[in-house]
Design a protein around this nucleic acid. Structure first.
Length: 471
RNA sequence: GGAGAGGUGGCCGAGUGGUUUAAGGCGAUGGUCUUGAAAACCAUUGUACGGUUCUCCGUACCGCAGGUUCGAAUCCUGUCCUCUCCGCCA
């Protein structure tokens, strides 16, 4: 979520930023937000003043009614005079009459029904205030609904361009391998080696599901361990989180409301399967206020990721590039606002270093405004070349969201020199995602006979084996 | 899944309809005292939003959501969570 005060102060500047993202629908909401915010503040100011008067009158009435020093006649006389004052909305005078320490003179005769009259006036007042609160609630929920659909704004360093085709590719790291045979795609290598079983995956769960067997299952487990150990060596704390989370957590990490149809929900509870561990980690410190001395807080978690992929029906249907269930190791940082961009560089370099250790050709993509997505202010993708399917595969995406998620999930910290809390910045990056890394390894390390060499760094995780053999 | 008990500030804990505008204690922070520290004493104490503009003021928040009432931490309903026991279970 953006800072409402910023929208209030610089609506035109906000619109310019959103224009760079190409989000026309969000652009159209800004004027409505400015107006709703104005209405909200006007109505709140009014009802809070009325509420203050009402609270004071109610307290004063309680004290008056309980007074043991005052005669019933005096009480009734005060109640009656105060009722009249409330009737003409002179609340200050009404409470002054009820609270006065010395006897209040007046020509109004005491009346047995005086308290009834006072209660009646207070009830009318209360009804008016309640109507006001209901109006405010309607406006506030409409305002919030609009705010939730506004994307994060791009950082000034992000290249302005319309689409993913304009993303700025960095130099290729590592040499593309020269084959003396035709490299095969993984969807041929996998079944031939008996390590990917597409038919049985489909039998059990349908299209875009698969079964890993023997060396395939072990290779995935090795990769997960390798990724986690690497992150741990980089001072990330390893965490294991629930894979099923409350609806509110998806709002906190900004998947909802915009991407609700990409996530799997449970039928019997209003809970959802993680599309990424980022959702769980973002909300780890929800509603907390951390101390600056603890920052940055870095976490790493492995989790399965469940995605419905409705938006890409018919695309990438072959192989395991785009599936409903995959494994990912996610790096995440909670930082001070001042250091989030430095941390983004560090995190991206760490993701690249994993590719380098696996000795596969990779490159970094600087994402342009039109492809930034909903919550990032700046983003880098890491892609690995896969010679079999002949394409660059995105294996990591590292983003800074600044305070966008922090505002939604109430992630704050106290600066060391102040007791006034500030929002944290959050960063996330894959480190890495397994099916695509497995594709890259199979296709880059394949031998002429169909067997696959195992990269050096993974051998300790596979009992020292050097090759996945043809059987 | 069944039965019972319970959810109050950073923590403990009092509070069964109106000076509770949440007591008291612990902790934390600042101060006094001290060569320094401890102890003692004094003061301060959360979050969000709005108004004001550098100082305050107001509103809301006692798990959450409704309801009753002129007025709710307190009464009613629903719901979530925690604990204890029983059942089931990797």
């Amino acid at each position: 979520m953006l800072d409402i005060a910023l929208i209030r102060q610089k609506p035109d500047w906000i619109k310019e930023q959103i224009e760079k993202l190409g989000d026309e629908a969000a652009l159209a909401r800004i004027d409505a937000i400015v107006e709703l915010d104005r209405q909200r503040r006007a109505i709140r100011t009014r009802i809070e003043t009325e509420q203050a008067a009402r609270n004071k009158l109610n307290r004063a009435m309680g004290v008056l009614r309980g007074s043991k020093t005052m005669t019933d006649g005096e009480k009734a006389m005060r109640a009656q005079t105060a009722s009249a004052a409330i009737g003409v909305r002179d609340y200050d005078r009404a409470s002054a009459i009820l609270e006065a320490s010395e006897a209040v003179g007046g020509a109004v005769p005491a009346d047995a029904a005086a308290f009834e009259e006072l209660i009646r006036e207070l009830r009318i007042m209360g009804d008016q205030i309640n109507d006001g609160f209901k109006q405010a609630e309607t406006i506030e929920s409409e305002l919030r609904d609009n705010m939730l659909w506004i994307p994060n704004l791009p950082h000034e360093s992000v290249p302005v361009a319309a689409s993913e085709d304009d993303n700025v590719a960095g130099a290729i790291q590592g040499a593309l391998r020269e084959f003396d045979f035709d490299p095969k795609p993984h969807w041929e290598l996998g079944p031939a080696l008996g390590i990917i079983d597409f038919e049985r995956g489909v039998k059990i769960s349908g299209s875009r599901y698969y079964v890993l067997k023997d060396w395939g299952a072990r290779l995935q487990r090795a990769l997960i361990s390798f990724f986690l150990d690497t992150a741990r060596a980089n001072s990330y704390r390893e965490v294991y989180t629930p894979y099923i989370v409350h609806r509110e957590m998806l709002y906190g990490s900004a998947q909802f409301p915009k991407f609700e149809d990409t996530v799997y929900g449970l039928a019997e509870e209003d809970k959802f399967l993680l599309p990424t561990a980022e959702v769980a980690i973002t909300n780890l410190h929800r509603d907390e206020i951390l101390e600056e001395a603890e920052l940055p807080l870095s976490y790493v978690a492995h989790s399965p990721c469940f995605r419905s992929e409705k938006a890409s029906a018919g695309r990438d249907v072959r192989g395991i590039k785009r599936v409903h269930q995959f494994e990912k190791v996610e790096m995440f940082k909670f930082t001070r606002p001042e250091s989030s961009y430095d941390e983004l560089e560090t995190m991206t370099e760490q993701a690249e270093a994993i590719c380098a250790q696996l000795k596969v050709p990779y490159r970094r993509l600087e994402i342009v405004t039109g492809d930034l997505g909903f919550s990032a202010t700046k983003k880098y993708d890491i892609e690995i070349w896969s010679p079999g399917c002949e394409e660059w595969l995105e294996v990591s995406s590292c983003s800074n969201t600044e305070a966008f998620q922090a505002r939604r999930a109430m992630l704050r910290y106290y600066p060391s020199d102040s007791r006034k809390s500030r929002y944290l910045h959050t960063l996330n990056g894959s480190g890495l995602a397994t099916p695509r890394v497995m594709i890259a390894l199979m296709e880059n390390y394949q031998q002429a006979d169909g067997s696959i060499e195992i990269p050096d760094v993974l051998r300790p995780y596979l009992g020292g084996a050097a090759v996945i053999p043809m059987t």
